[in-house]
Simulated scan of single mutants.
Amino acid sequence: MIRSRQVWIAAALSLLIPGLGHMYVGHIRLGLLWLVSLYSGFVIAGAVGIVANPYGVIGLIVFTLVIYILVVISAVRLARQGKAYHLKPYNTWYAYGAAALLLLLVNHGVFSVRGDMFGFETFSIPSKVMAPSLRPGDVILVDTRDKQVEVGDVIVFYPPDQPSAYVMRVAGLGGDTIAIKAGQVLRNGTVEHRLEVAPSQRQRDYSLAMATRDIAPDQLFVLGDWRDNSRDSRFFGTIAPSSIVGTVTLIGFADDLARIGPLAVAVEATPRAIGLSH
């Protein structure tokens, strides 16, 4: 059967999934080449560890947009080449649907292992335990390959005997001593300014004082920024480095668009909770 190819259909299918528009115009191999190019860009970015970097995210977004634009242009040009097109066996609505479903399943599978494959994870903040640094509704990007943490880093981890991921700030490393006096966190006997929070965030007795604790060599001590409403290492004890998912690098989405970008230290707050959701 001979039918012309519609430009708008070729463009729409390409926008839906790169390569689908090429399947429509009878150039399935070229479509697969474009699709492989897109995935290769993500794999390479993940391999070199730039996906969780703010500039790497911008670069990856630009790369994806460029690929989509080129794919659409390519499919549209092929659709315009001739009005007489001999239909291929795969030029049926169910073949397009099957191809789209297959690629969506592949995308879902790849994205579900993004932490291992691309070096990043995304989490949604449901609570105010890290306010105002992180607020409910924020979507954070976590570098899953950066587990050599320092004091002051914000990390996602799994506390002892808890199935949910938490997000808190590293307050002490293995071999350190930690104490709280007059609301100030003392690390190895010295006030740790990277852990200072507003007085409004540390009104309760357990936020104003804590006896000195020794941190075992293979452990970390974590604190929430809103001390009064954070169940952290003061309550569940230290955590093992192996429980760390990664280091929070940026806020990818926030109700206040001005807050989107690299994570900044802040001081002030409001209530509680701890779990995270992907």
Rank of each mutant, 00 (worst) to 15 (best):
R114W: 06
Q148L: 03
V76Q: 03
H193F: 15
I17R: 00
S200Y: 13
A264K: 05
G137L: 15
G56V: 04
L13W: 07
R3H: 15
I61V: 08
G237W: 12
Q162V: 10
V62D: 09
P262L: 03
L15F: 10
V106L: 10
I17S: 11
F120C: 03
V25P: 00
H27V: 12
A12R: 00
F157W: 04
D205A: 14
N91K: 11
I244N: 03
A165V: 01
L186S: 08
E268G: 01
I251Y: 04
V167A: 05
I215A: 05
L134D: 01
V72R: 02
A209G: 03
T177H: 15
V139K: 13
T238A: 12
P160L: 05
T190K: 13
H86Y: 14
D255W: 12
N53T: 09
S230P: 00
G82C: 10
N229G: 08
L195A: 03
F123H: 03
V76F: 09
A264M: 15
T212P: 11
F221H: 00
G26R: 11
A273I: 12
L78D: 10
K88C: 06
R80F: 05
N53S: 06
L30K: 13
L78R: 08
M130V: 01
D205F: 14
V191R: 04
V110D: 07
A171V: 10
D255A: 11
I251W: 02
I44V: 06
L186G: 12
D153C: 15
Y206T: 02
D218Y: 01
L257I: 13
A131H: 04
I2R: 15
I50A: 13
T64L: 09
A264N: 15
Y96P: 01
A47G: 08
W93A: 04
G246K: 10
L103P: 07
L65Q: 12
V72F: 10
R114N: 14
I239G: 01
